[in-house]
Amino acid sequence: MVEQVSVFLENTSGRLAELTRVLGNAGINMHALMVADTSEFGVVRIICDSPSKAKAVLDEAGFGASIANVLAVEVPDRPGGLADLLETLGDEGMNVEYAYCFVRPQGSSAVDVFRVDDERASSVLQAAGFRVLGASELYSS
């Protein structure tokens, strides 16, 4: 499992810019950012170096940040790679609450981030041959 920083945001202009500026000023590098939004609010999900430092600087700046544990899985960058993975979870009756993916510049594989409310997800994926990433493989500290 890896740590993701989640921030509840009101849907107002400039708020996301403020958030990313706070992280930038603190020297925090983001690897992935995903915004889930409704007409009234949004949730920003961030994979970055030093998640706990990111939470601290965001809290300090008046944002309500929290840390969520998510699964980060390496997926072969080829057609059907993600489908294989989702079918593995689906076969076990596990529901994916949300997912997003990013490609690391140094590799030929994509990283998929999942929120699955089932503790067995990690071992099920590993048993099926997927590489589940730990914090040290994804971000520094």
């Binding site: 993701q4 989640s6 509840f8 889930a36 409704t38 609010f41 949730v43 999900r45 809290d59 309500g64 929290s66 840390i67 969520a68 609450e97 949300y98 929120r115």
Partner: peptide, 15 residues
């Protein structure tokens, strides 16, 4: 206001 220790990050939970 959501509570300072608000830790919902799923849209479904917030709604």
């Amino acid at each position: 206001e959501v509570a300072p220790d608000f830790n919902f990050d799923e849209i479904r939970e917030i709604e």
